[in-house]
Computed example of a mutant assay.
Amino acid sequence: IYMDLVRHGHVDENYMAEQVRRADTTDGDIDTLSHRIAQIRTWTFVSNRPGWLADQLHWQEKTREIEDRLSDALHERLTKRFVDRRTSVLMRRLRENTMPEAEISPTGTVLVEGHHVGELQGFRFTADQSAGGEDAKAVRTAAQKALAAEFEARAERFAACANGDLALGSDGVLRWIGAPIGTLVAGDEALKPRLVLLADEQLTGPARDKVAARAERFVNFQIESLLKPLVDLKNAEQLTGIARGIAFQLVEHFG
């Protein structure tokens, strides 16, 4: 490049075309792709220097397209390396029949043995969507094993939480510190909706019962507090005849 600039004042485009052609392949491992990206960036730099090339715009577009392809290929290789390493670690822990170490961030990100495996929101775990095949099986199995104690601990915390930590939205979803816990569906009576827990099957036994009981207490409290006039109408045994019929209609239509 230097000699071309000194002798001719511009870069030989035939030479550049050959170098760019050599870099334009996505074969190879991570190191090979990284080296090619470094090469093509050199030619991207050349294409952006005023006066160095006759057809500057063409080479800018060409080198940018190649760099994008190489970057995508490198990302794919890096992802595969990460997945392979994660699968290897998790499968080894499962074979050893040891309890995998789990970390859960405040936002719900779940790491098992230092590897991202998914998200835990409330009592529902969502496995990493990039996992597939054997990796997906390893991720889910390891996560279930690692999160067993967390489900129990969360159930205890939820059962003891204050009303201020819970919120019932206009969409009928009950949330605990922002995480969906349950949803209301119509029950046999207007003022007695049924609560359906939004929880994995891993939440079972006494732990699930505690969560359900606390959630139902909060829902009942909300109904009795916010809809007290309707609750009183429903329970007004002194009403008879037309008055009782009107009261029934008011309760059924929430006012």
Rank of each mutant, 00 (worst) to 15 (best):
P106R: 02
E216F: 02
Y15E: 09
F151R: 02
W43I: 06
E119K: 11
L174D: 01
M91I: 13
P100R: 02
Q121D: 12
N97H: 15
V196R: 04
T26Y: 04
W43M: 08
R157I: 03
C161I: 06
R124V: 11
A149Y: 15
T183V: 15
L233S: 03
L250I: 04
H75R: 15
V112F: 00
H58A: 13
L90A: 03
D171G: 10
E96Q: 14
P206W: 01
D4G: 10
L174T: 04
H75G: 13
Q60E: 12
G133E: 10
R69S: 09
S130D: 10
R214L: 05
V20D: 00
G255L: 08
T87Q: 03
L111D: 05
D12V: 07
E76Q: 15
R7P: 03
R69D: 10
N14E: 14
A131E: 03
A142R: 02
F254M: 12
T25D: 03
L94N: 00
E96T: 09
E65F: 07
P106L: 05
S170I: 14
Q144W: 08
Q39P: 00
D209G: 11
I66M: 02
E224I: 02
Q222S: 07
E101M: 07
C161D: 05
L111G: 01
F151N: 00
V83I: 14
L191N: 05
W52K: 03
G132Q: 14
R154I: 04
E252K: 15
E113N: 11
D12A: 07
P193F: 05
A213Q: 13
A155G: 12
V139G: 00
V173K: 00
T26L: 05
T141V: 06
Q222A: 06
D55S: 13
E119Y: 04
V110I: 10
E67I: 03
I177L: 12
V185D: 06
A102Y: 01
V89K: 00
V251F: 00
A23T: 14
Q129N: 05
N235H: 11
L226Q: 14
N14M: 08
I37P: 01
E67G: 03
P100A: 04
W52L: 06
K192G: 09
T109L: 05
S88W: 10
I66P: 00
G187D: 09
P50D: 04
G108T: 07
R157N: 10
I37W: 01
T204C: 02
A186V: 14
W43P: 01
G122E: 00
Q121N: 13
Q144E: 14
Y15N: 09
K234P: 03
L166T: 01
F221K: 11
L195T: 04
A162V: 08
Q129D: 08
E134Y: 08
D27K: 14
R124L: 07
A179K: 07
L198S: 06
A167P: 05
Q249V: 13
K234T: 04
A179C: 08
L230T: 02
D84R: 12
T141L: 07
P206C: 09
P206G: 11
R124A: 02
D171K: 12
F82A: 12
F221D: 10
V211M: 00
L174K: 02
G169I: 11
S88E: 14
S88F: 14
T42H: 09
D27E: 14
Q144R: 15
E18S: 09
